[in-house]
Design a binder for these strands. Sequence first.
DNA 1: CTAGCGATATTCT
DNA 2: GAATATCGCTAGG
Length: 205
Amino acid sequence: MNAKKLQKQYFQNPNVIFLAKDLLGKVIFTNKHGEITAGIITETEAYFGIEDRASHAYGGLQTARTAAMYQPGGIAYIYLCYGIHHLLNIVASDYDDPKSILIRSVQPYKGISVIEQRRNKPLSDPSISSGPGSVSKALGIDLSFNKKSLAGDEIWIEDLGMKYNLNEIVSAPRIGVAYAKEHALLSLRFYVKESQYVTHPLKPV
DNA sequence: CTAGCGATATTCT
DNA sequence: GAATATCGCTAGG
């Protein structure tokens, strides 16, 4: 178990499907006001950019909100959803290629008591960090993390040597993107089969 | 267990 | 005005 922080080059891969799968088992750390919390990634979704009807950057749309996705990979894109929930995305690929990966669920790994306080739930309740809004709240992520480097000292990702076998990873359609028409059915969501920390378990495709 | 609904920023019509 | 990459609470079977 040789812990190492993932560097920019890792994220600048344009293959978001590979990244979405490879990120399962990696660990996200945050350091907020000196409180360090971390979670093992158990569920992700890939968003493949300007051709993806479900992406905020569909058609090359650029706004103040989506600007982060047009930066080179390796930074965080934090999006305020429904005006309430912060969603954590990992920007992939290169400059002007707005691909990203949404972190949907994690398994608490470090700073458990801090996470329990932030969520006001016991660790025994899997919903403590299942679902993109919950992940952000558990890890203390808010808009101040937007565009932050993922190789910095406020938010970063480590490879602790944990790896899931392909037969432990399930792919399924993305959630909450029915408006995306033909792209709504693509199996771009990936999660760990036996993990309790996933959003409403759907049937594998 | 499932269904309904409120909260509410950004973006588009 | 309407929709959205959601959550958590409430009511009911």
